[in-house]
Nucleic acid binder design. Structure first.
Lengths: 145, 145
DNA sequence: TGCCATAGGCACCCAAAGGTAAGAAATGGC
DNA sequence: GCCATTTCTTACCTTTGGGTGCCTATGGCA
C-alpha cells in the first residue's frame, strides 16, 4: 500500500489544523472549566460522531439516508440520535425541505469543520501507528499465553 | 479568566504535534484498513484513556494510587482495566517493583506521547469552543421549549 | 499478636447504551 | 383507492459498561 490512510485528509484541511498549535506555557486551571471540557470531549469523541463528522467533511451536504448508507453499521436510531446531538452542539445544520416524501439535508457548520480539523491529528496518528499497536498487542498477548 | 485551559499543554508538546500535519492530497483507501483504524480510534478515544494519557503526559511517571487519586471519579476496576489496555496497546509501560507493599509505576512510551500530541488539537478545540457550544445548545433548547 | 498499606483479582449486580421492529404522516403515481 | 417513499418516533429487549464489596500476599510496626 503505497499511499496510506492519511490521504483521507486534503492538504488544505490539514493546514487548517495548524491554528490549534500556537500557545503559552502551562498553568493551573479552573476545575469547573476542566470538568466542562472533559464532558464536551466525552460527548464529541463518540465513535459515530467522529465518523459522521469525517464523512460530511469530505462529502459536503448529504441527506439522511445517504449518511446512513455511508456510515457502515449504524442503526437508524443511532443515526437520528447522533445527528440531533451534533445539531444541538452546533456542529451541523439540519435543513428540512417541505416536500413529499420528506427530504432533510445535513451539512457541517464552521464549528463542525474546525472540530474535524482538530481530529485530523488523531486520524493520522491512528493510520500511522496501526501496525505498531498491532505489534504491541501481539507481544503482550504472547507474553503470558 | 485570562489564561484559558489550553495552557494545559506546554509549547514543546504542541510543537510536537506538528509532525502530523504534512501530507498528500486525498485518494481512495483500503476498506479493511479503514475498519481497523476506526476500531483503533474507538479504543483510544475512550474517556478514561484520554484522561490518563493527559495525566501521564504532564506529570511523568506515576504509581497506581497516584493515578487513581488524580483521575477524579474513576473506580479501581476501571483504573486497572484501562491501564492494562493501554499497556497492551503499547501506550505505556508498567513496572512492577518486587517490594512489600507492592509498588507499580506507570509511564508513557514514545507511542503514548505521540498519541497525546495528536489529541492535543482536540483539547485545544474543546477549550476554545466551549462557550460556542454552550450557546448553540441554549439556542437549540429554546427553539421548541 | 494483630493491624496497616498496596495493587490488584473476582463475582455479583444495576443502569445505561444500543439494536430491532413497528408505526406515523403526506402525497404523487399506478 | 392503495401503495411506495422518506424521515423520523416509540416501545421493547438485549448487551455491555461500570460500580461495590470481598479476597490475597507480606513485611513493618505498635
Amino acid at each position: 500500500m503505497a499511499n496510506p490512510l492519511e490521504s483521507r485528509f486534503a492538504t488544505a484541511e490539514i493546514a487548517a489544523a495548524e491554528q490549534y498549535l500556537d500557545h503559552d506555557p502551562p498553568t493551573e486551571l479552573d476545575p469547573r472549566v476542566e470538568r466542562l471540557v472533559n464532558e464536551l470531549i466525552g460527548r464529541v469523541a463518540d465513535k459515530w460522531t467522529m465518523l459522521i463528522l469525517e464523512l460530511l467533511e469530505e462529502r459536503g451536504t448529504l441527506r439522511f439516508t445517504e449518511v446512513g448508507r455511508a456510515v457502515e453499521g449504524i442503526s437508524q436510531k443511532m443515526l437520528t440520535q447522533t445527528l440531533r446531538q451534533m445539531e444541538r452542539d452546533g456542529l451541523l445544520t439540519r435543513t428540512v425541505h417541505p416536500v413529499v416524501p420528506p427530504r432533510v439535508d445535513y451539512a457541517l457548520t464552521p464549528l463542525g469543520n474546525s472540530l474535524s480539523a482538530a481530529f485530523c491529528g488523531v486520524w493520522v496518528w491512528a493510520e500511522r501507528n496501526l501496525a505498531t499497536v498491532e505489534d504491541a498487542r501481539a507481544r503482550f498477548d504472547a507474553r503470558d499465553a
